[in-house]
Design a protein around this nucleic acid. Structure first.
Lengths: 151, 151
DNA sequence: AGCTCAAGTTCCTTAAGGGAACCCTGAGTG
DNA sequence: CACTCAGGGTTCCCTTAAGGAACTTGAGCT
């Protein structure tokens, strides 16, 4: 498999984002780091991913400024923490999770719940229009070519 | 490369969702279909994807109930349209796009804009708490183990 | 000096993506 | 009624990335 480089595509934020976290395992690694599974051995054991691939993914995520590698011991031991850029990417995972919970629900129910700091409730995320505050889903918008459109 | 089957993982909505649209190209195909690039030849030309892979992806997306294949001519000509399940998946792409616009912005600006039906404005999507309506991002929540948690 | 343990690195095998050529079906045209 | 055209795939071969297991490295422990 040749490395698919989506950034060759006409300026496209989806393609560019996929170049950052589109590779297999990357979203799951991001989730692990977010919930505190943040060391190499832990992630490897949690996901069952090959060590080689995990190394590659962590390096790439670090190169892209999504995670930071930081020592936690005087021995050469490291853990990975999310940057601001990486934390904002988790927003996407929350929306992905909501879709999976709804459409691919296992009998057991969602494996992760979110407690919202502001209200203290176990809740889920909702998409709204930045401008008017009303719900805004894919069916509520028309996509239009923007300034960076290719054709 | 062996086919990575993420669903082997402990019940995880992210892993399950990745089994549906996690393969290379799938999110871009979904975007194309959403914005009206919905025929085989159009998608192939737009993305520059191999015909073989495009066939595989479209079949998989159809199997998963994300798109529907429908004839548009008396000759054997087909176009793909999003199902409800697929349309809701586009919500995730909108969030992904917002992240890409913010963190990977090209000079040219976003290639696609959204006009919100409710207010008629060109706007973007915002994440809020379903319960209290306040902003809800990854940094505003604590992840907790839910009923379907593995360990 | 030898042991342990996290965190990689190396090497081999296998399967998936790229790409180009080919095929099939139903119209339309002379 | 043969001939062409076009969309929508299929087939084939080649390359490359993922899997997986074994090996390495660097520091502290005993």
């Amino acid at each position: 498999m040749q490395r698919t480089n989506f950034s060759e595509l006409a300026a496209c934020s989806i393609a560019r984002t996929l170049d950052v976290i589109g590779e297999p395992w990357s979203p799951l690694i991001l989730r692990d780091v977010w919930v505190g599974v943040s060391r190499f051995e832990q992630i490897q054991a949690d996901l069952g991913i090959s060590r080689k691939v995990l190394t590659e993914r962590l390096n790439h995520l670090a190169d892209q400024g999504i995670v930071e590698r930081r020592p936690y011991d005087r021995r050469p031991r490291y853990e990975y923490v999310l940057t601001e850029k990486g934390t904002e990417l988790v927003d996407m995972l929350m929306v992905m999770t909501r879709w999976g919970d709804k459409w691919l629900a296992g009998e057991a129910g969602p494996p992760v719940l979110y407690r919202h700091h502001a209200c203290g409730e176990i809740t889920s995320v909702d998409l709204r229009c930045t401008h008017c505050g009303e719900p805004m889903h894919a069916r509520d918008v028309d996509p239009l070519p923007g300034p960076g459109a290719a054709n």
